[in-house]
Simulated assay, not measured.
Amino acid sequence: MSTILIADDDPLMIRLLEFNLKRIKCKLIVCREGLGAEQLLKTERPDMAIIDVMLPGKSGLELIQFVRSEPKLASMPLIVVTGHGETQVHEELLAAGANRVFTKPFAPSLLQSAVQELLDQHA
């Protein structure tokens, strides 16, 4: 069973992600702020992370940069969710190392497909 870290401060988004990811039989770790998410990435070493861009403590962009700079985490698939739909924001997140970027609101089925695809590629 794959382990996924969800780093998001929105309780409704967390519930949506939990509901949809449990359907594909994933163990979930949830953190509502960036510094705690960084610590969990170090200690738990999940198989994937889904990160909101706007987090208290440390931004999603900073978390992407952290993951990509850590040798033991660098290949971890990262999905970023954001309320910013601008192409420039998406390009910046992808250039920083995100594997996929989803603009809120998004179709849960698309997220499920992306999670499954990235986990299969990373296995």
Rank of each mutant, 00 (worst) to 15 (best):
G83L: 10
L111M: 12
R100V: 14
C31F: 08
N20G: 11
H84I: 00
F102P: 08
L111C: 09
F106E: 08
G34I: 02
M76H: 03
G60C: 12
K42F: 04
A37L: 13
I64C: 08
L110T: 02
L40Y: 12
H90S: 10
D10M: 12
D10P: 10
M76E: 03
L28V: 09
A114E: 00
P71K: 12
L35E: 13
I14G: 02
L111Q: 05
L73P: 02
I24W: 07
E117L: 03
A49I: 00
T103V: 15
I6H: 04
P11C: 12
S59I: 13
L17F: 11
I64N: 06
S59V: 13
L55R: 04
D52H: 07
V115Y: 00
E44Y: 11
K25L: 06
L41M: 06
N99E: 06
L118W: 00
G97E: 00
E86T: 14
M54W: 06
M13Y: 01
L21V: 03
V101G: 00
L118F: 01
V53P: 03
S109P: 03
S109D: 12
A98Q: 15
I4N: 00
G97V: 14
M54H: 07
M48W: 05
V115C: 04
E62H: 05
P56N: 05
I24G: 09
A123W: 05
A98P: 13
P77Q: 00
A107E: 06
G57W: 01
